[in-house]
Design a protein around this nucleic acid. Structure first.
Length: 825
RNA sequence: GCCGGAGUGGCGGAACUGGUAGACGCGCGGGACUCAAAAUCCCGUGCCGCAAGGCGUUGAGGGUUCGAUUCCCUCCUCCGGCACCA
């Protein structure tokens, strides 16, 4: 078909490059030679290159996988040629919902489907031609791995970083199952549409909040995208303010509020307490009891997402109590309302309706007095009677006794000092960050290694019983409880070890726990009795370059940092930060939309890889644009790369091998080396490829090239098109040459990266652009050592320039060294 | 609403710290080869012009500068994140 005719009309000079036979050949040779087997101990110049590990889905590898894994592979090959000992492992984040859902649907146990998916993915990765060291792979769902997930839990428990408390979960009464937040969007169940209810369960938490400040401070030293750092800072959400304590009228109770704007306190007219607040009952007076109880009951029915819709009409009930504002002596009614959240600040808020929109809305709804204490930007000091007049910005303070005339930057500290001196308040710092809820009411996860005695008290499972195996005699169909509850074996095992009446913890761990330390487990070889080998950890961490999607900015990337810090405090590791440099690959979309199975718009790379080969496909992905940008999928340009590969093949095959390169060719080659090197250093694979294209466009017109230079060109191609380069390298006698000249191994990617001679980049003439009034009017070629005066003089004699100078005087002459002359008239 | 980021030909994109905008590729137009098509090669491809040359131009408007895609201000659009956070 196509191929025969292509050859026939090709002039018979060279065979067409055929990736279908060449690529498997080299994949086999690489594997047989064990070229990717890595020795962590022997490595001299270690570089840890890590790409976030994938979930082993049952579907075939998609375009996004290719983008995420083949391009970093090219980068890794480049660094390897630069002399780095590049450790680039790959594993599988294998616990999680999809395998469990698949089991519910088909009855296939998650362990079986997962193992099969992993094998399928490995085959596909090999076909991709990536140089993962499969000797160092891991799978988080295997007991050999999750025993360390459990070990980590035990360490957290031992160091008082794990605790239990009641927390609400989303529950679907129809499916009888706990839902993740993403399965319960809009307050209805993803699967059946039934309204989701909130259910309180006692669950395990990890105290990430203890590390809030360190997580914040640590960001400063990381080589991460600024955007990601900002997101983490916002996520941690440090706020400095003051806790003000008010006396409650006719009661021994006191209420404490948190505020960052105490200077507005002369305008405080009410207090709002969260419906969940434990102090609430003590504040409710007898005559308000019924109303408040009804309101609290109503709130419980609402999901968090429902409660946090910004535009919702404010609701609330008066508790009957009032607090005294000691600044003014005013009694502030205490209300209960669901717009105040229990888990931020103190769960109680002081209402300043004149200068906070939500407070104003509430006050208007409930008929509470509004006082102005800040002059608005346009000087308005009058009453505040509409939402438009609520002035939330900073301005001059009025109606506030000793603060009058001040601006917030001065008033805030003054008020804080005043309140602290009078014992009314105390400065505090709060964080938005919440403790990490690690319990999941799921089957397919690492069992939490805890057992409960007959009195219900928790005890850690001793380390000698790890891995605390996930039972297999379970019912996957949802019953409203954790699937593990129905495992006879699990309960029997627990009673046998710990005694009659003992029960295991039936919840499993969040999969983010598994992925919070996997970069450490890749460093293990052979000995599986230790969590981490100290010498290797010191040598290899932090990860030099971590590549993954920006969607992990706030979850995985904070959890992993937290765990690393905790492990350092416990003495297991020597570094506080796991990932020194972070790069987010861009997203490959399809017609602007994210590819997803549910949208049925996932592009399969299979047919393209089959037709054009792995090298062409990966280079096409690189050529689409910068790695960090991603892009919209389109196959229209793949032809360009295919042509390029054929052109490279043809030229290298047919070009005359000469004894000496022309000076232009040599200069061009060295310029190309410089540009490709610089592009790769900056992860600009697209421009690395275009530089090579330019080189071949010129090379085509050359008489010939030395074998030495040809080999140099092949080495430049090696990271980008590894299979093609290997074939060319062999053709050029590269392996024999390499062995003869230094004992290095023979594959192309095992060779040294070409260096360039800066002297060859400089030519002895330079082209100076001549501008008149900032517009280009010509150019002059001058020797590099020409003086400024000579250059300007030459510029003025240019025909086209002369025309503009005619009859006008030059007011100013600007000369930019080696670049341009601008004549201002 | 708040916090980030980005807007460059028909398209993907290039342009290091302000200095020839549009590299490279796709697509498109023309030509060579062919009975023909595909493939391949050559030429062209911001606009006007046969050409010499001229003009315009990096989302819109303004500013700084001899000179702005690049720096500053205002606005528009798109993307990402957060959001009743006190």
């Amino acid at each position: 078909m196509e191929r025969d005719t292509r050859e026939r009309y090709h002039g018979g000079m060279a065979q067409l490059y055929d990736p279908a036979s060449v690529e498997p050949k080299w994949q086999k040779k690489w594997e047989e030679a064990k070229t990717f087997d890595f020795d962590l101990k022997k490595a001299k110049d270690p570089l840890y290159l890590l790409v976030m590990f994938p979930y082993p889905s049952g579907a075939r590898i998609h375009v996004g996988h290719w983008f995420q894994y083949s391009i970093p592979d090219s980068y890794g090959r480049y660094l390897r040629m630069r002399g780095k000992d590049v450790f680039h492992p790959m594993g599988f984040d294998a616990f999680g919902l999809p395998a469990e859902n698949y089991a519910i649907k088909t009855g296939v146990p998650p362990a079986a489907s997962t193992a099969e998916n992993v094998q399928n993915m490995i085959v596909q990765f090999k076909r991709m031609g990536v140089m993962f060291d499969w000797k160092h792979t891991l799978n988080t769902s295997e007991p050999a791995y999750y025993r360390w997930t459990q070990w980590l839990f035990l360490q957290m428990y031992k160091h008082k970083l794990a605790y239990r408390k009641e927390a609400p979960v989303n529950f679907c009464p129809s499916c009888q199952t706990v839902l993740a937040n993403e399965q319960a969007q809009d307050g209805t169940c993803e699967r059946c549409g039934t309204p989701v209810i909130q259910k309180n369960l006692t669950q395990w938490f990890w105290k990430i909040t203890d590390y809030a400040q360190r997580l914040l401070d640590g960001l400063a030293l990381l080589d991460w995208p600024e955007k990601t750092k900002v997101m983490q800072r916002n996520w941690i959400g440090r706020k400095e303010g003051i806790n003000i304590t008010y006396r409650v009228k006719d009661s021994r109770e006191k209420v404490t509020v948190f505020t960052t704007r105490p200077e507005t306190n002369f305008g405080a007219t009410f207090i709002v307490i969260s419906p969940e607040h434990p102090q609430l009952t003590a504040l409710v007076t007898a005559d308000q009891k019924k109303k408040v109880a009804a309101y609290v009951r109503q709130t419980k029915k609402r999901t968090t997402s429902e409660r946090t819709i910004a535009d919702r009409k404010k609701t609330g009930v008066f508790t009957g109590s009032s607090a005294i504002n000691d600044l003014t002596g005013v009694a502030m009614p205490i209300w209960v309302a669901d717009y105040v959240l229990m888990d931020f600040g103190t769960g109680v808020v002081v209402g300043v309706p004149g200068h906070d929109l939500r407070d104003f809305e509430f006050a208007r709804e409930m008929g509470i007095e509004v006082i102005r204490v800040i002059k608005s930007a346009d000087g308005d000091t009058g009453p505040i009677d509409s939402a438009d007049k609520v002035f939330e910005d900073e301005g001059e303070i009025i109606n506030s006794d000793f603060l009058n005339g001040l601006h917030p930057h001065a008033a805030i500290p003054k008020m804080m000092d005043y309140m602290e001196s009078k014992g009314m308040g105390k400065r505090v710092t709060t964080y938005r960050l919440h403790d990490w809820l690690v319990s999941r009411q799921r089957y397919w996860g690492a069992p939490i290694p805890v057992v409960y005695d007959p009195e219900g008290r928790p005890h850690p499972v001793p380390e000698k019983h790890l891995p605390w195996l996930l039972p297999t005699d379970v019912e996957f169909k949802p019953t409203g409880e954790s699937p593990l509850v129905h495992s006879k074996e699990f309960i029997e095992r627990t009673e046998k070890i710990f005694g009659a009446g003992w029960r295991p913890e039936f919840d499993t761990m969040d999969t983010f726990v598994c992925s919070s330390f996997y970069y450490l487990r890749f460093l293990m070889e052979g000995d599986q009795k230790k969590f981490v080998e100290s010498k290797l950890e010191e040598k290899w961490l932090p990860v030099d370059m971590y590549i993954g999607g920006p969607e992990h900015a706030c979850m995985h990337l904070i959890y992993a940092r937290f765990i690393m810090m905790a492990l350092m405090d416990m003495g297991f590791v020597s570094h506080a930060e796991p990932f020194q440099r972070l790069v987010h690959q861009g997203l490959i979309t399809n017609k602007g939309a994210k590819m997803s199975k549910s949208k049925n718009n996932v592009v399969s790379p299979d047919e393209f890889v089959e037709r054009h080969g792995s090298d062409v496909f990966r280079m096409y992905l690189m050529f689409m644009g910068p790695f960090t940008d991603g892009g919209d999928w389109s196959d229209t340009g793949i032809k360009g790369i295919d042509r390029f590969v054929q052109k490279v093949w043809r030229i290298i095959n047919v070009i005359k091998k000469v004894d000496q390169d022309s000076p232009q060719l040599l200069a061009n080659l060295h310029r190309t080396i410089a540009r490709v090197t610089e592009s790769l250093d900056r992860l600009h694979f697209n421009t690395a490829i275009s530089s090579l294209m330019e080189f071949f466009n010129v090379l085509e017109k050359e008489e010939g090239m030395t074998v030495e230079s040809t080999r140099t060109v092949v080495r430049l191609l090696t990271p980008l098109a590894p299979h093609l380069a290997e074939e060319l390298w062999e053709m050029l006698g590269g392996p024999a040459f390499a062995k003869a000249s230094g004992g290095k191994r023979g594959f192309a990617f095992e060779q040294e990266w070409p260096s360039y001679d800066p002297a060859l980049l400089v030519s002895d003439t330079m082209t100076i652009v001549v501008q008149v009034n900032g517009k280009m009017r010509g150019s002059v070629d001058m020797p590099c050592d020409a003086s400024e005066a000579d250059i300007i003089a030459a510029a003025k004699t240019q025909e086209n320039v002369k025309k503009y100078l005619e009859g006008r005087s030059v007011r100013k002459e600007i000369y930019v060294q080696g670049r341009l002359v601008n004549l201002v008239l």
